[in-house]
Write a protein that binds this DNA or RNA. Structure first.
Lengths: 339, 339
DNA sequence: GACGCCTACTGAACCGGATAAGCTGAGCCA
DNA sequence: TGGCTCAGCTTATCCGGTTCAGTAGGCGTC
């Protein structure tokens, strides 16, 4: 089956291909009658303009890039990315943009991908995930002048546009809630320490614990996997001053932690309260269902995509704070035993 | 920062852009010394050929399309797709192909996307997921002559290349294993009924149950979500002839089923054995850990991508059976109580 | 009725590569 | 020394759009 080109449309309509281009793009230069005739013919023969040809002359590819820098075993297990992608996609496809995805091994490989995408003009802009402290990707993108929106922050995003949720506020609210329940020994199983949002949560945790005089507060680091989350929990629960509540930086580690607690003979929430970050259906599947910090992740992705399209469209760079994660209390949190 | 073009490389090297093209593509027509000089200059100024220009003259975009037709809430929760994507991506990026992703609402929208991609020459081929019975996408793709690999089968894939795992064999093995443990009343919580692999599993289940004379075998349909999986389990466990073992078509429903069973006061595995399809780290996180039918999903994706690139490269259409899912017994299966 | 002006188009250049066809000079041989 | 071959390049064309610089023709105007 031969693909129709603009010349085919022009021939059918008995006009030049310039006229067809004007008609299809809503430009002035053709009469309304001719425009309608051309549109009808284009629809009839199933014409879609070649993205390559359009990209070549318009110097815009109509695609947005997303490079994911996490090992496959974590990517698969965390619902976050797929939810984010589906939101990004919804916004992009509504505006006829394509999403180009690439999984990379490390930040340097990611920078190389950005450089290549830029040189190949393959994408008009990129979404940057998993902001790190002193992130080398930021200056690299600034240098390339490739439109970008950093999903993460605030801070550390250089001159790039960014979108973040107020994790500090969410964490503070969570600690205050646990303290209100009567907890004094609160632990936190954090994600990868070099991620900026881990740092923000860690700082907020330290601040609120100091303010509320929680001297036994402790943070341990993990890598978002269930195995590590379980191990971290086992260490915490084996210590002399066992925490009565644990906040996990993702849902998978929280579920693993719940398993470990039950395996060690503890009852959740009587002996141990558990809070998960990134509420997901998983949190509702386990017993007891997990109290979680949730937010609308597809909407987060959609907002990031919308922001990126604005930057690509030449609008000034914006830094936007999105919805703050909100705490949904479920069965995994309660006052500690003996209070 | 200006993007270097082939003309820039040519100017620096003091040759024509034709010579640069020959040098970069390993074509004869330039001396080895000149080729090396051109390669060095291209690397030095950071030249990558414009994908648009290359696509325009070579009539190949260097991209592969993947349209996902599942609601966001299911996409996010099931690790399957992300694992598949990471495998696809590994194979594609090793061969410098890009992956274009689109989330669609229904099969007709998916066909429209294929038609558009084809007209826009945006992708050189597509991977088709979630094969259905009498799948309208198959004749549409055949008509477009768009290279495609169907992930699913066997059968129902028309003249397209396909890749599948022998779900019938895996299901048969699972039922035989449960029967060997002493189970006679086995139920199955199936996925969406119009998916081809659901049909294949359902047929295999009926066949093996008849052969082994399991008169109480029952299949109920669900939609892969935890909510539905839980509801289906509740119905099954409330019936007079309660099953002693349940096979779930995905991990999320199995975990939900486990929760429901425990909530109803049943002990797993003593009162109820549970088997999950699609082994994932989630299965190891719950208590007891779930016996599961696993396979290497990233490898599955990589094989599909490799097969698609072969079809794009003009090799004959192939139908390939991939690794059969294998049963990993864990704590959720045991002989039924009273045996 | 000559002039300007506007509308509705056409023709051609251009984007940045790939590639077929043409050219050139060196080397070889008769 | 002239002719032939061939490696090693250059030149020109093409891919399918967008867009700019014309241009033809109709219309109003003084």
């Amino acid at each position: 089956m031969k693909r129709p080109t603009i010349a085919d449309v022009a021939r059918h309509a008995g006009v030049s291909k310039g006229a067809v281009s004007y008609a299809l793009n809503g430009q002035p230069g053709v009469s309304e009658a001719t425009r309608q005739r051309i549109l009808a013919i284009a629809a009839e023969i199933g014409f879609s303009p070649s993205s390559a040809a359009r990209a070549l002359s318009a110097a815009a590819s109509g695609a947005v890039g997303l490079a994911l820098c996490r090992p496959a075993r974590i990517l698969g297990i965390e619902p976050f990315f797929m939810a984010l992608i589906s939101g990004v996609e919804a916004e992009l496809s509504a505006r006829s943009y394509a999403l180009t995805l690439q999984v990379v091994a490390d930040p340097d490989a990611e920078i190389a991908v950005y450089r290549r995408w830029w040189g190949e003009r393959r994408v008009d802009g990129v979404l940057v995930c998993d902001l790190r402290t002193d992130d080398r990707r930021i200056p690299a993108l600034e240098q390339l002048q490739l439109p970008a929106v950093v999903i993460g922050g605030p801070g550390g995003t250089g001159a790039l546009a960014s979108l973040w949720s107020d994790d500090a506020a969410a964490l503070t609210e969570t600690v205050e809630y646990l303290v209100a329940l009567g907890h004094r020994r609160i632990a936190r199983v954090a994600g990868l320490p070099d991620l900026r949002h881990t740092e923000i949560r860690t700082d907020a945790f330290a601040t609120v614990c100091q303010r509320l005089d929680l001297v036994d507060a402790v943070t341990v680091w993990s890598d978002y996997t269930g195995e590590e989350g379980g191990r971290a929990t086992r260490r915490l629960l084996s210590s002399a001053q066992r925490p009565t509540a644990v906040i996990y930086d993702n849902d998978v580690m929280a579920i693993a932690g719940l398993s470990v607690a039950q395996e060690m003979g503890l009852t959740v929430p009587a002996d141990l309260s558990i809070v998960a970050w990134d509420d997901s259906p998983l949190c509702r599947l386990v017993h007891p269902p997990l109290t979680a910090l949730g937010r609308d992740i597809p909407a987060y992705g959609a907002h990031a995509a919308k922001q990126l399209l604005a930057v690509i469209g030449g609008e000034p760079v914006s830094r936007v704070q999105d919805e703050t994660p909100h705490l949904t209390p479920r069965g995994s949190t309660a006052p500690p035993r003996g209070r």
